[in-house]
Structure formats: C-alpha cells, structure tokens
Design a binder for these strands. Structure first.
Lengths: 202, 202
DNA sequence: TTGACTTGACCGACCGGTCTAATATACTTG
DNA sequence: CAAGTATATTAGACCGGTCGGTCAAGTCAA
C-alpha cells in the first residue's frame, strides 16, 4: 500500500467520530486503525499513546469549533442576545442532524470526555478545562458588551458566562439522556434568563 | 470462610463507590470483587451481568437520594425558593466532602453514567432517563407551588423544572472538569433565575 | 543513503463471563 | 431431637477475546 500523506488526519477524524459517538474507553486503537485504514505501527508512529490521541482530538475539534460555528455565533456584528440564540440553534441543528444519521444523540464531545476521564486523567482533564475556559470567555465578552450597550442590566458577567456554558452543557446532557434533540430547542432559550448578580464591592 | 448475609450489599456499595469515583468502563468486576471481599462466583450468583449491576447501582442510589437529601431539600414545609437553595447547598457540601476524601470531584453518578453509556446501552439510558424525570418532577412541584403562592410570576413550570435540573447537572459537570466544588457555590444561585415562558395558548 | 513512514506479527495483562466442586443453611422427615 | 436432603451461597480455576502497546523488518521519496 502506498504512503498517503493524510494518514494522521484520517486517524484523527476517525478517532474523533468514534470517541464522540461512543466513548473514550469503548473505542479501541485497533478499531480506529481499521476504520482509518491504517496499521497499528503507523498509528503509534504518529501518536505515542491513546492519551496523546485524545489530546490531539480535543485540540482538533476545539480548533474546528473556534473557526467554525462558534466564530459565527459570537460574531461581533450580531447583537449580543442574538449570539446566544445562534449558539443554541447551532447546537440543536447539529445534534438533530447527528441523531438522524446515527440514531443517537452524541452530545458534546468535550462534556462526554470530561465526565468520563477527568477523575482518572489529569492531563486530559486540564485540557478540557482549558477548552471550557475558552468557550466561557466568548460568553463573557458577549455579556460585557450587552451590559455596556445597556441591553441587559449590570451583573457578574464572568460568573454568568460560566453559568450559561454550564446550562448549555446540562441541556445537552439531558437531551442526550432522553435521546431527543427537541430538549435543546425547548430548554435552550432559558439560557438568556440566567443571571448571577454582582457581589457587593465593599 | 463463613457466609455473610450482606454479600450483595457489599458488592452494591463497592460498585457504587467505584463507578462514581471513576467510570463504568474503567471499573472491572474483578476489582469490585476484591474490594468487596467476594469471589467472582458469588458475584455472578447475585448479578447476571455487569449491566445488571449497573442497573442495581442506579436504583440503589436513586432510592437513597429519594429518601435522603432530596426528600429534605424538597420538604413541603420549606418555601419553594429555599428548596432550591437547599438543593444547591447539598450538592456543594457533598462534592466538597468527596473531594476532600478522594482528592477529586466525582460529580453526579447519574450524569457521569448518562454521558458515558447512553449511546451504547439503551437499557441503562432509559433507566437514567427515568431517574432524571423523577428529579425533574420534584422541581416541577416546587415551581407549581411557587407560582401558586405568588412568589414567582407564572411560567412554563414543567420546562423550567427540567431546565433547572439541566443547569444543576451542567454546573456539576463544569465543577468536576475544574475539579473545584467552589464552582457549585458560585454558580448555584443562578438556578433561581432560570425562566422558560409559557407558550401562548391560542 | 538517509529518514520518514508502513507492515503485521507479537506481547503480557486484563476483560466479562462460565463452570464445577465444595460448603453452609433451611427444610423436611422419622 | 437427629438425620437426611434440598437449596442458597461460596470458592477459585479457567475461558476466549480484547486491550494498549512494542518491535523488527520492510518500503518509499528525497
């Protein structure tokens, strides 16, 4: 078989799909290799361990997000409130599409991995935490702008931003457990009502 | 060795601890047996499979909750708003205590299992869904009473109840990823601000 | 010729689960 | 009560399969 320049990419995207639609522990390297049409030796040429693969998958998807629908959702041209709507809609349509293809709602890869491995693997946990921190920062900017232009009353924008991210993850968790993307559509709008008040600065 | 009448209970509580502090896939039956001081033959005498064990663990913990702090939190004697505070506080102190003992925040067993196995195991997924439905029902009652006694304006109590549960799970997810129970204390109060409006009944 | 990449056999450890034999308890009799 | 029997429980060796990971021998392009 000839050398294909995209071997690493094939491994990465295959692993990403499998980890997302099942779980970290449930997907073996052998299975990834088979689906990616790669031999084990090649795999370990590119990734020293399964843990390294997981890190690469996380980075890969995080980048895709940052340059994909997250960038669109948090477009500075959009009014702050609409950005939240956009985000919820994007999650809804994404999960719905995924369910139509696979029959099951995969949920959020980061959330899935976080709950599965963060008590066992400090390195992965830290990486996932960084991804969440970045996501939270986008909400934070949005809220700061909303407060600045007066569209919402002052509040603890940093805490509320994190709260909104938490809410989104929680909604996805429940929707996945119900295997019903409609949960996202119904509960999603609630994200705009979350408020954490400023701590009195005395 | 003598026959001990609580073999099944030992297996159950050991499995519960291990599943909670690690994950379903990461904990083997052999390890459970060793810690519970039980032989494999005995294990499979009481539980036909690992899946059955998981179901039993879920039921076990669900019952403990229902008769434990959930019953206290949703005590009808408490004003509805205080019940939400109680719930958040309980989660906070519980997670904090667990972290002090084990060094890591275990999060919510149900949430953990839901994200790990619900794409692979319909039976467990359905059971977890039922547990969430029961929890959501408690929030629902609470909100109905709050609306009834006028302490909050009318809203879609059913959807909001689910949204609150989602928020709680999301907060726990983020806290676990940060391995910091303080996240629960800081974001927790936000649960009372979540509102999902009634759909216009036309 | 070098070095990146591929091949696929191989490794020990562990997985969930099975099985037979032993043992303790409970139930039935005389 | 004693003896015998059925049943519940325990003991632990054993099974095929899979796990993450290794390795020596190639194959290719530069």
């Amino acid at each position: 078989m000839s050398i294909s320049p995209d071997t690493k990419d094939r491994i990465l995207s295959t692993a990403r799909e499998l980890f997302h639609s099942r779980s970290y522990a449930d997907v073996g390297i052998k299975e990834i290799c088979t689906l990616a049409r790669v031999q084990k030796g090649s795999f370990y040429h590119f990734f020293p361990s399964k843990q390294d693969l997981a890190m690469a998958v996380i980075d890969d998807m995080s980048d895709d997000w940052a340059h994909g629908f997250v960038a669109e959702a948090f477009d500075e041209a959009l009014p702050p409130t609409e950005r939240l709507d956009y985000m919820v809609d994007a999650v809804y349509y994404w999960q719905k599409a995924a369910k139509n293809v696979e029959g099951r709602m995969p949920g959020c890869l980061f959330g899935n991995l976080a709950l599965e491995v963060s008590t066992r693997d400090e390195v992965i946990r830290a990486r996932l935490n960084a991804v969440f921190a970045k996501a939270s920062a986008r909400f934070h900017e949005t809220l700061d702008q909303a407060v600045e232009n007066g569209s919402i009353p002052p509040l603890d924008t940093e805490a509320t931003a994190t709260a909104m991210l938490a809410y989104l993850e929680g909604v996805i968790l429940l929707a996945k457990t119900r295997n019903d993307p409609e949960v996202v559509r119904i509960l999603g709008p609630g994200i705009k009502t979350i408020r954490i008040e400023l701590k009195p600065t005395n």
